[in-house]
Amino acid sequence: MRVRAVLVVSVLAVALSGCASEERSPAEQAVTRFYAAVHDRDGSRACSLLTPEAADGLSVGGQSCAKTVLELDLPGGQVREAAVWGDEAQVRLTRDTVFLHRFPRGWLVRGAGCRPRGDLPYRCEVRS
């Protein structure tokens, strides 16, 4: 979240107003593009929408990210809601929860196929 000034009152006013709504769309669109690539069986395109670390994590045992990503259990679904805080976002789908990070070139997926574990971090099929 971008707070517009360091003065306390300004911090308060802007922090209250800047919490997430205007940037939901780009994050949701990134998730939609990722799942469209998975649905189209286009592994290369899906991997290009992952963070570098997440893509590296799927390049294991001599198998490419493009192949591995299509073998994972990524349930997807319709976008229900999104939360954006600073350069991090969480997009909830009907059957999945996706985490993203904002890079200079846009939002990239850092976690997908995620299942909640109470107070512990989500367990994700794709994660950086």
């Binding site: 707070v3 939360a83 805080w85 600073g86 350069d87 850092r110 971090p121």
Partner: peptide, 12 residues
């Protein structure tokens, strides 16, 4: 805001 950014970066 800061806490939530950290939470999301840790997949929480």
């Amino acid at each position: 805001a800061s806490y939530n950014e950290q939470q999301l970066s840790q997949l929480q």
